[in-house]
Computed example of a mutant assay.
Amino acid sequence: MDHGMMDDAASASPGPDMETPPPPEAGSGPPRAADAIWGADAMRASREDLQRTHGDFPVFWFQGDRFETQVRGGADGYLWDLQGYYGGPTSRFWFKSEGEGTFGEQIEDAEVQALYARAIAPFWDLQAGVRQDLGGPDTTHAVIGVQGLSPYQFEVDGALFLSQRGDLTARIEGEVDQRITQRLILQPRAEVNLSAQDIPRLGIGSGIDSVEVGVRLRYEFIREFAPYIGIEQSWRLGGSADYARARGEDPSVTNYLVGIRFWF
C-alpha cells in the first residue's frame, strides 16, 4: 500500500459515530434569520431566486406512451395514448388523449382530457378537470383522479368520470418498467374500466366493463425514442360482453402490437 494513502487514511474522519455532535442550540433560531437583519422585502428576491435554482420553475413535458398498430384476427387497428404537462413541481396543467379504431373505418373511441394537478404527497398528484369524448355519442365528463409512482416503481393512473347525463365510470391503469439491459426494457401493463350502471348508448354494462392485460418489449435507441413489440389480451365482461355480442363483436380479443414510445 502506498505510504501517502496510509497517511490520508490515518487523517480521515473516523465516521459519524465519533464525530462531535452539534450544539443543543443548533436549529433553534428563526427559520428566516436574515429577515430580522435585512428585512423581508430585501430578502424576497434572493429567496425567489433560490427557489427557481432548486427546481421551482415551469417545465413542459410531452410523451407518446403508446402509439401502435394492433394486429388481430379480422380487421387490424391502431391506438394512441398521449399525455403531457406544463407547470412546476407542485402544480401543473395536464393534458391527455387516448383513442383507437380500425383501419379503413371511423374512429371507434377517442377522448381528450384537460386537468389541473396538485401534488399531495411525494410522487403523487391529485388531478381534476374535464374529459371530452370525440368518438361515438358526444359526452362530456367531470374528472377527478390520482396519478403517481407507487412502491416498486409501479406507475399508477386512476380516475372517476361523471358524465353530463349522470353516468359514473372509473378507470385504473398500472405499468412497470423491468430493465433487461440499459436499453432493452420489458413493460407489463394492466387496465380496468368500471361502471356504476348500464349505459346502453355506449355499450357499457354495470360492474367491470373491460380488462386489458399486456406486455411490451421496447428498445431505447435513445432515451427519447423507443420502438416496441408486444401482445395484449382484452376482455369485455358482464353486460358489456352482451352488448359486444349484439354488435357482432368478439368480447375477447388478442392484439399483437408494433409501436413506438417517445417523449420530449
Score class of each variant (00 low, 15 high):
194 L>G: 07
46 S>K: 08
184 L>S: 04
21 P>D: 11
101 G>I: 05
140 T>S: 15
43 M>S: 05
204 I>W: 06
217 L>C: 01
218 R>G: 06
211 V>F: 05
115 L>H: 13
165 R>C: 04
32 R>K: 12
6 M>R: 13
120 I>Q: 00
256 Y>R: 02
161 F>D: 09
67 F>N: 12
207 G>H: 02
90 T>G: 05
115 L>W: 06
201 R>M: 10
197 Q>E: 13
50 L>H: 04
113 Q>K: 14
74 G>D: 03
177 D>S: 02
104 G>V: 06
58 P>A: 11
110 A>C: 02
201 R>W: 08
205 G>Y: 07
210 S>A: 15
119 A>T: 00
82 L>P: 11
159 A>Q: 12
153 Q>D: 13
83 Q>E: 09
65 D>H: 06
252 S>K: 08
144 I>T: 15
180 I>S: 03
200 P>T: 04
234 S>T: 09
163 S>P: 01
152 Y>C: 05
50 L>I: 07
15 G>H: 09
166 G>N: 05
145 G>S: 10
46 S>I: 04
87 G>D: 06
165 R>S: 13
249 E>G: 03
160 L>P: 01
36 A>D: 15
192 V>R: 02
183 R>F: 02
150 S>C: 10
206 S>A: 15
41 D>Y: 00
71 V>H: 07
78 Y>H: 08
47 R>C: 00
192 V>C: 01
150 S>H: 11
204 I>R: 06
13 S>F: 11
7 D>I: 12
13 S>Y: 07
50 L>C: 01
88 G>P: 03
120 I>R: 00
129 G>Y: 12
159 A>W: 12
144 I>C: 11
210 S>M: 10
10 A>T: 11
196 A>C: 03
142 A>L: 15
91 S>I: 06
6 M>C: 07
42 A>T: 02
230 G>M: 05
144 I>V: 15
129 G>A: 08
264 F>H: 12
90 T>M: 05
72 R>I: 05
132 Q>G: 10
164 Q>F: 10
218 R>T: 00
221 F>N: 04
176 V>Q: 12
21 P>W: 11
219 Y>T: 09
154 F>V: 14
217 L>R: 00
173 E>K: 15
165 R>H: 10
95 F>T: 13
145 G>P: 06
20 T>L: 14
16 P>K: 12
255 N>F: 01
259 G>M: 01
97 S>V: 09
157 D>S: 05
123 F>R: 14
102 T>I: 07
203 G>S: 07
202 L>I: 08
188 P>W: 00
77 G>R: 02
230 G>P: 00
143 V>Y: 04
144 I>D: 09
128 A>D: 04
9 A>E: 14
163 S>K: 03
178 Q>W: 05
25 E>N: 13
194 L>A: 14
118 R>Y: 12
55 G>M: 06
244 A>F: 03
28 S>D: 06
202 L>D: 13
264 F>S: 10
208 I>K: 07
88 G>Y: 04
257 L>I: 01
261 R>E: 02
228 Y>G: 00
